[in-house]
Design a protein around this nucleic acid. Sequence first.
DNA 1: CTGAATTATTGAGATTGCTCAATGGATTAA
DNA 2: TTAATCCATTGAGCAATCTCAATAATTCAG
Lengths: 230, 230
Amino acid sequence: MKDSESINCLDCKRSAKCFKKLIPSELEFINQNKTQILYRKGENICKQGAFASYVLYISDGLVRLYLESPSNKNINLKILKTSEFIGLSSIYGDNIYNYSTVALENSTICLIEKDSFRKLLTDNGHFASEIIKWYCENEKQLFNKIQSLNNKQMHGRLADTLIYLCNKSLQEEKAFSHLSRKDIAEFAGLSTESTVRLLTELKNENIIDITGKDIKILNLQLLKEISRRG
Amino acid sequence: MKDSESINCLDCKRSAKCFKKLIPSELEFINQNKTQILYRKGENICKQGAFASYVLYISDGLVRLYLESPSNKNINLKILKTSEFIGLSSIYGDNIYNYSTVALENSTICLIEKDSFRKLLTDNGHFASEIIKWYCENEKQLFNKIQSLNNKQMHGRLADTLIYLCNKSLQEEKAFSHLSRKDIAEFAGLSTESTVRLLTELKNENIIDITGKDIKILNLQLLKEISRRG
DNA sequence: CTGAATTATTGAGATTGCTCAATGGATTAA
DNA sequence: TTAATCCATTGAGCAATCTCAATAATTCAG
């Protein structure tokens, strides 16, 4: 978090690819219909089930997205970074968020009026197409998650999680420093205890290196093999 | 399947809501860039991993959509009916299908050139918005699936599956008559044997009624309670 | 109609991964 | 610094669910 002063969308240096498809008047329109808010580390940016009036855009920050369940057993779906959207899935349909998000570090979020966002979608097919690209990629990730949860046992699931969390862009964000063992477990769909046990195992086999909270993959090939075998 | 003669899109009586957003010249454009194919019961309409050049549209039929895994353990995601799309998630991104589909009964499928479909999306924001509506609904379903698989045990998962498969529109299609116990199990993410045992249990408790392949819910309230409790 | 093949059902034992409990380490507040 | 709290780790037992095997029922081809 560098500043909390509201940036004009036309000057925004952290704008997503889709915004490049807008003409100046449309960008100005968004600018008129957005608010910028600073969320502090640990604060919920949106809550599953809550009324969704805005599409959220991460102007600067790091966010964990997860599904809640009545049984108090959550599932982490992804870590979102600067220039990513939250809540695109609530543009149409029920007017509620389908998931919760929490700020992993202080984050500046742009709240864009949903109605305004919709107007841009209908007015500008190029903009809408970029959003559809996002949905395509997003769905692929959800399919991966489903396959991981349904077809793999502990080892495979944790391997999938580690491969995801160690990807280059999350490494840059030092994602692990913001995640507890419980968080990692909730990515893999495991109990915290099982996760700890497996992590120790992987460390002893020199497949990963653990330094404090940080985890580094030493043998990616082998980890991928574990993921593949399930 | 009533006929296999290619219908002109402008005359199509089974067109999805999004097509209503197209102007006649755009409909004609689709008409020029589509082919219609009859798939017989049991045939694969698309295969996960295969090259995806078309967006598929069910002109008339019933289709099961599932994810495959190397371990030969599949997951059924949904049953698609007349006027629904297959493969919308492959419009952008890798040029491959992310899932497989199989015809549950003889089905007439329209294959629409992907490039043409994309052109309509960029040209017509209202059309694109309808597709985005589809994605929103679709994502919600996937979240439900993830929550069901990750947070619930056998009873809750099977309850979810039965509630889904017994919904009014699938009832009309006699979905169960096309599904084996294994298919039901792969909806719930259970082994076939566990599924059979649980079904018998539910029948003995008069929560469902089993007549041949058909299953009817007798006590929806209780089934929902089982789903809720997980 | 009849055997062959597939699908459904049931039982018993094996396995996976969870829960609970205890302990140690780290971080925070005063 | 010292509690107090929270998080991480480890062990042991237990519960959920799968796998394997045997049998019954159904469907299908000729």
